[in-house]
Design a protein around this nucleic acid. Structure first.
Lengths: 353, 353
DNA sequence: CGCAGTGCTGGGAGCGCTCCCAAAAATCCG
DNA sequence: CGGATTTTTGGGAGCGCTCCCAGCACTGCG
């Protein structure tokens, strides 16, 4: 192309070739030419690097405006060897898990800080093995400048891999049996403890819990918080049944619990969804909430406001979680070594206790 | 760095330099060399293009496995002039809008079909003007191979731009006053009509509606469906008040409606969130649902199951919406010209009528 | 007035891949 | 078995950008 298509002395004027519609995006080369400077100078001006005279800088700016130039991100990424995108990855086994509004809000939080930067957000639902493989590739080939990894169960092989990947990785939540180098988490244990203490303070003495999935860090932490509180209060903390965070699971667990300990008068439930299920079982069984048995949930989902009675629950700052993950990633990417962060949770008192 | 760390005559053998950990990803060049073929041949083998002998193909494959080679997506994108990612963009004015579980489910749907391809998913919450500008750039510079654009209000300038962008764009939902070339939408009008007919069939005669935002296609369509049904039934269809899809908005509208037409006996509400708000107002006002006034909502959010009484509502196939958008985009990208698609909505009968 | 110092400047060499194309090798067929 | 086909092969030229570096034009100062 160099000298074949262009007869010198002809290609000089490229202004207003309005006939041809498929106008390619102008390139840096064209901007430079139009501004009467070299590619290098133009590049410097654009990235406002030093060593460009004021005059050239302005000429370049003018050319950019005239041409409507936008740098080609791909070329830049190739040249600089670093991508202009970060990925938010949800690893797990259930494809539909992401449908939890929790993640939607995380995304909003993450987005709010990314918006201030030039970084794009890629979403990776690494739920199938295919998805996991692709995430692994991204990790290895640095197609992304950084990764936020969430919600791994038990011994997710991705966890270790990610924590040592050549790209910065921050974890959202702590996977079980594994303390990542960089993470932000909610104080699940503290929140659960708060919830349980609230039950104790309300005079309940026969307190049970319905746990979430215990192969997740959050599930386990909430159970520990429950036990912490009861241990301090000197109450029996062995009234435990297991759910899977779902409404269905909550119903089942509540049924079993009622069967096993008909005299229970309070229960801490590791998710609002499960609490809703439990509530249904309780009302079918003729127990009034909170008169007969008091309930505290976890998560503060919007439905929690609309149950009968409205659910007392533990709120975790999801939006902030997202924000902080993104901020931590940014810090990591710029070479800092941020400390892990644990965000506080709060008891939201409504009417179920 | 070129010649400082490496004394020539030393860097020739790069096999097993296991001391240095920061092993770069192998390049195509290296694969080719190891397989004893040319770059071109290796490239062909990898993209399994024709004109490669069986022997070379295998040699290349072996080299790939040995080296753990993964093609560099950026370089490929630059060379082929087409990106390996598509973007799902939510355009609108409210940053938190995405927190609606609706979008989460759309994402899951979209992801389920993208997972079968090599395409990555980028998320663009084009809610600030900054975000919009960036989306516009993506559109113009083809940083993405395609775009799915959702939920634009009224006269979103992005709409027209997108519909004529040089990259394939499919719309999710139809913006008002604008029929995109390619879109998939839910049958909002039909669903609203169904809902209203249900109210009529239940013997209600004084039927009102609380609309959603009328600057959105969905809001308007639901209002039209409502009017369609009442026109057919020969009933007064002027009992209309406006909400904004939110619970708060629903409460307000219901209050006004009750004030204006104390004798109403049925109301079609354009979103479940608003219905929840309305329900609260109704119960405060001492009206029993459905005995005094019957309610039908729209969306079938999970909370709708847990209201008192459980809400009869219209379900739209959100997951399918996501899937179909992605499928349509894929079709478009491969050169087809798919027809717009309208997905059916369904009445979910619970106890509020 | 010459020379070191300082800041600009633009050419060139990549980044890792694709793809065109001419040349070489393999195949066919009268 | 030679020439015409057909297939395979690998070199080279990009894709659009960054960044190194040598070359310049200034400035200031002894």
């Amino acid at each position: 192309m160099t000298g074949i298509g262009f007869r010198p002395g002809q290609a000089k004027e490229n202004q207003q070739v309005t006939t041809e519609t498929p106008r390619r995006q102008p390139t840096l080369e064209e901007v430079a030419e139009r501004a009467g400077v070299s590619r290098s100078a133009a590049s410097r001006a654009i990235n406002n690097a030093p060593h460009v005279s004021r005059a050239k800088r302005e000429a370049v700016q003018r050319a950019i405006d005239d041409l409507g130039y936008v740098p080609n991100a791909t070329a830049r990424a190739l040249a600089t060897q670093q991508a202009g995108a970060v990925v938010l990855a949800i690893s797990g086994d259930d494809p539909a898990m992401f449908a939890d509004p929790f993640f939607a809000e995380i995304v909003v939080g993450v987005n709010s800080v990314l918006e201030e930067t030039e970084l794009e957000l890629m979403l990776s639902l690494a739920t199938s093995s295919r998805g996991q493989a692709r995430l692994e590739q991204v990790l290895r080939t640095r197609q992304a400048a950084g990764v936020m990894l969430m919600s791994l169960h038990g011994d997710d092989p991705l966890a270790a891999l990610a924590d040592n990947a050549s790209v910065p990785v921050v974890f959202g939540g702590r996977p079980l049996n594994f303390e990542p180098r960089y993470y932000v988490d909610a104080d699940n244990r503290g929140g659960a403890r708060l919830a349980t203490e609230h039950l104790v303070a309300a005079g309940r003495r026969r307190i049970a819990t319905i746990t979430g999935r215990l192969d997740e860090g959050a599930g386990m932490a909430r159970l520990q918080g429950f036990q912490d509180a009861l241990a301090v209060a000197g109450l029996d903390n062995s009234l435990i049944d297991h759910g899977d965070f779902s409404e269905e699971g909550g119903s089942l667990a509540m049924t079993r619990l009622l069967d096993r300990a008909p005299d229970l008068d309070g229960v801490f439930i590791a998710s609002d969804q499960m609490a809703i299920g439990a509530l249904r079982v309780l009302s079918k069984a003729g127990r009034s909430v909170p008169a007969d048995v008091a309930l505290v949930g976890f998560n503060d989902i919007t439905s929690a406001r609309h149950t009968e009675p409205p659910l007392t629950t533990v709120n975790q700052p999801i939006h902030a979680l997202g924000r902080e993950m993104a901020k931590m990633l940014l810090a990591l990417m710029s070479g800092d070594q941020p400390s892990p962060l644990i965000l506080p949770t709060q008891l939201v008192i409504r009417s179920s206790v």
